[in-house]
């Protein structure tokens, strides 16, 4: 698959075809018919079902990355840098 376009899949998709559109499937970007075709395939194909489960779990893990607080030293340095910027701008006004 090139960067220029996602591959189309048939109404009775193969395992390989499903792998190429998983991202769009998870993001809800495929038609209802294609989603149903993928789910029908997965119902009879435990490896694909497992692959979709691990792929989905991976996305969940990435999405639930804990937010790191901004270290106070970084915050202080940023504030000082912006203050210098603001003062320089105010002097020119």
């Amino acid at each position: 698959m090139s960067e220029s376009g996602m591959k189309n899949i048939s109404s009775d998709p193969t395992c390989e075809e499903i792998f190429t559109v998983l991202s769009e499937y998870i993001d809800g970007e495929l038609s209802k018919e294609l989603c149903e075709a993928i789910e029908a395939h997965n119902g009879n194909c435990p490896p694909c079902q497992a692959f979709v489960e691990t792929y989905t779990k991976t996305i969940e893990l990435v999405r639930t990355q804990p937010a790191e607080p901004l270290p106070s030293a970084v915050k202080d340095e940023l504030s000082a840098a912006l203050k210098r910027c603001q003062d320089a701008l105010d002097q020119t006004r």
Binding site: S4, M6, F19, L22, S23, I59
Partner: peptide
């Protein structure tokens, strides 16, 4: 957008 989708899919894989 298609390049974004392609990169996202590969990154997730």
């Amino acid at each position: 957008i298609s390049a974004v989708k392609s990169r996202l899919h590969r990154a997730r894989l």
